[in-house]
Amino acid sequence: MFHISNGDSMKDLRYERIASNHKASENKGKNGIVAFVSGGILGALAEGLINFYSSIFDISRNDATSIMIVTFIFIASLFTALGFFDKLVNRFKCGLLIPITGFAHAMTSSAMDYKKEGLVYGIGMNIFKLAGSVILYGVVAAWFFGMIRYFIGGAL
């Protein structure tokens, strides 16, 4: 009994040392710069797409924004379904997760993961597994802050 627990704690110690070595090699500063640059490029691309759509279709900036968001969601969904968006996310991390591409990625990947459990119990019940919390807390926060604005500051 004593021997087993002793061996376990030795194993834990060794595991922790190995784990901490790997953590140290993961460069936080580099991760931050990569996220900053990739996110920034996506932002500039979004601005470019808005200008492109509003000039080519002759529509207002607000409508062009909607089409721009649909474009990004389409690309992120397609790349996730094809299987190589996960590798891009591993490399760029928050640069791809914080923009709207992360939302589409979460929905498509949970739909793909549970596809084998069937259309209703698999895809239907799990498609909002990760993205659901974004919608839930977004709606609750928007309602709460909207109430504050409505009663204190007046409507828009």
Partner: peptide, 22 residues
């Protein structure tokens, strides 16, 4: 456009539509 693509703009759109309708 850079402010419309991060997920923060999702929260902004939610409350903006709600306030506009109110």
């Amino acid at each position: 456009g850079g402010a419309l693509i991060p997920i923060t703009s999702f929260g902004h759109s939610l409350i903006h539509g709600a306030l506009a309708k109110s």
